[in-house]
Design a protein around this nucleic acid. Structure first.
Lengths: 161, 161
DNA sequence: CTGTTTTCTTGACTGAGTCAAGACAAGGCG
DNA sequence: CGCCTTGTCTTGACTCAGTCAAGAAAACAG
């Protein structure tokens, strides 16, 4: 497995370094991690790793197509290793948890707008907003308990599938 | 026209103030403006207007449903007055220009994911990424002239429909 | 093993947006 | 019409995510 990362890096023309392998391994474990979580996770494998190094690694991985960057509105960017299949995302309004959804309609751009207004479209990005099952039950509990405080972002950047 | 804004504000339970009317009028002229452009534009009507006031006004307008906030990846948030019809957006990768697209499939959520992974979805947000006609011709020109520099973001936050 | 080139570390910096305290204005009431 | 309350705006400090740049370190070709 780890060896596979090395191969993929080399094939992409990137050197195989500990920071890169660490970041890849964190991404494999946490399929929708933000930069901060990646720093924390990768430091278990490479304690001296700096945030800037992670930003650099992520930029490189995205540039060669080994990772993909997604930016749900109002949250820091998330990164995932699932690339090349133009899948979409479910995002929880309450906790920020993200889940993958296979693209129903074949290859990118899986949808086409009715009127392109002169644009040449190459990708359709779809984000489904809603509440994950955990937050729904929490909200019910909150209501049942009588606590009126409205649900806020409890634990941003979740990775629960 | 201006009077209509006043009515809408009052109906929403907001006081009618010069900053709010100025922001609304800028949004009417520039249907996809970012905060910065709104500050600049609104200052023509109300020179002492501060950026923070604009942030406050925008937050209030969004909260009462008079405006909608969109956040294309990699760009500052944009605001629009077209609300309540769950339409979607075309975004130019090169200059950031945004155009509206009517939602092909009825009311929100106009799409439903195949597998909701336990989420309860209430909105499907769609962004079509591509190149606007202007940037396409510019890029062709660049190629024709032999300049190898790849197209970057020339003029973010455009409002061209 | 050595040299070249990429990559990482360290640290300063930017841009977008938030938070908080006090000044000011909108509009209800007398 | 003018005062008073309350919501809104101004001013200014601050946060968070991410970028830029210079030098140190590590990868890999030979």
């Amino acid at each position: 497995m780890e060896t596979t990362w090395a191969h993929q890096l080399r094939q992409a023309g990137l050197r195989v370094t500990r920071p890169r392998l660490s970041v890849l391994s964190v991404l494999a474990e946490h399929p929708h991690a933000d930069a901060d979580r990646i720093v924390t996770g990768a430091r278990e494998l490479h304690p001296s790793l700096s945030p800037q190094a992670v930003y650099g690694v992520l930029k490189a991985l995205v540039a060669v197509g080994l990772a993909r960057r997604i930016e749900p509105a109002g949250a820091p960017a998330l990164f995932e290793l699932r690339v090349g299949d133009n899948h979409h995302h479910l995002v929880c309004r309450s906790c920020g948890a993200v889940a993958d959804v296979d693209c129903a309609v074949g290859a990118a751009p899986c949808l086409s707008p009715s009127d392109t207004a002169g644009f040449v479209v190459d990708e359709a990005e779809v984000v489904f907003w809603g509440l994950c099952s955990t937050c729904r039950s929490e909200d019910r509990q909150v209501l049942a308990t009588g606590t009126p405080a409205q649900a806020q972002h409890h634990n941003r950047g979740g990775t629960r599938a």
